[in-house]
Design a protein around this nucleic acid. Structure first.
Lengths: 104, 104
DNA sequence: TATTTGAGTAACCACTTGGTTATATATTAT
DNA sequence: ATAATATATAACCAAGTGGTTACTCAAATA
């Protein structure tokens, strides 16, 4: 649990995707996050750490509560990688591709 | 190497992303694919199997050659999951979101 | 001050992952 | 027919993953 830590790997785990989904709506402390899953607090703590390490969330301490905030801009890398293959499932590519290309 | 096999996990591995990138350009047999990586043929064979199992590639046998063809429409699921968070890195969201919503 | 609460960490565990080498099978070439 | 080639599979292995329980520490509360 120490090595290769990138966005693709971070979102490969369904629990971590669910965590992202939750805190994208509103910041939550670890206890609130853990309350929604059938696993222990330490397990969630580890997921949070992984998400933090690749920049997908940031922690804001407020007393003893550690609030997790979504900071999903590092998903951009994954989005761009996937969207380059958009033609494989989307016919209305042209207009979209132009938009995407104007982003950077 | 038997269980949970989904698109997110399939693209989590950098070697598999590179394989996808190669065969998205043109179908290649396993030997050609393996030639680009510093790992053995059996290792590539396993990656190919994983990609096949989640539908990202299909194999077309031509004599003793097994040609890998990209069939990346199952990336759509991952694309949609990621793109729902596009607002985290993209300001020009409105026009894009309209486009994406028209897709389905 | 003593106790409870939220979170992190350490040590551990079973399973998975990505790799290896050796072997088998089918197809092509000599 | 024999040899070479392309691929798959089996058996194995080290390291990584996702989880656990037990413990510690800091902050809030009684």
């Amino acid at each position: 649990m120490e090595t290769r830590r990138d966005v693709f790997q971070a979102i490969a785990d369904p629990t971590r995707r669910a965590i992202i989904q939750m805190i994208a709506k509103e910041p939550l402390n670890l206890k609130s996050v853990a309350g929604h899953f059938p696993v222990s607090r330490p397990a969630i703590s580890k997921h949070i750490r992984i998400l933090t390490e690749c920049g997908l969330i940031t922690i804001h301490k407020q007393g003893r509560d550690h609030y997790c905030n979504a900071n999903l801009s590092s998903l951009r890398e994954a989005s761009e990688w996937i969207n380059q293959y958009r033609k494989f499932w989307n016919d209305k590519l042209d207009a979209l591709e132009n938009l995407l290309n104007n982003d950077h």
